[in-house]
Amino acid sequence: MLGQWTLDSKAQAPLGQSQDNWIPLTKDQVHDPRGPGLSELQDPGAGLFELPPHQSGNRVLWAKALDRGAISPRRSLTPNESSKVQVLDMDVLLDLRGSMAVVRFPHKIHTQWLACDNCHDALFKSKVGETKISMYNILQGEQCGLCHGSVAFPLTECSFCHSVERPAPKWRMSQ
């Protein structure tokens, strides 16, 4: 079961993960090991070890876990609200003039987790090009960095976002 995740995973993760890859609550230095509640709580390893593996963040690929049905998180608490939550399948290409690979922003994955108003229009204007996005802001926890780096996959995974290669420079093509 686990092998099927790893075979087509781009990430260089070990084949299958053991629960020991995560720090148990009693040793994470955040929880008080003397606290009476710890034995009643789930350890990260127990909850995460069967999900598609990755080497950073929570050590799992959350989007893939959701896409493959490895997890089925509840989308809403009230039935009325769930009809408002809609998946939008639209990619937006960003950073067209930089030197890194172009950013492909997939609305689909984001709207599988989030509602439109989580990002629009406070963090990002709905119209493409109206919001100036920069790595300076992102690295400081603004824009994409409000989630990426703290909860969503970390900012060390450049190629997850900068994923569309630019055409080779002209001097190279002429050779």
């Binding site: 789930q42 990260p44 909850g47 995460l48 929570n58 959350w62 997890i71 998180p73 509840r74 989308r75 809403s76 608490l77 939550v85 599988q112 987790w113 989030l114 509602a115 108003d117 989580n118 989630c147 909860v151």
Partner: peptide, 14 residues
């Protein structure tokens, strides 16, 4: 991580 396994982000954040 614990809550993400069970709920999508919008449940709490929207």
């Amino acid at each position: 991580w614990f809550h993400r396994l069970r709920f999508t982000c919008n449940v709490c954040h929207a």
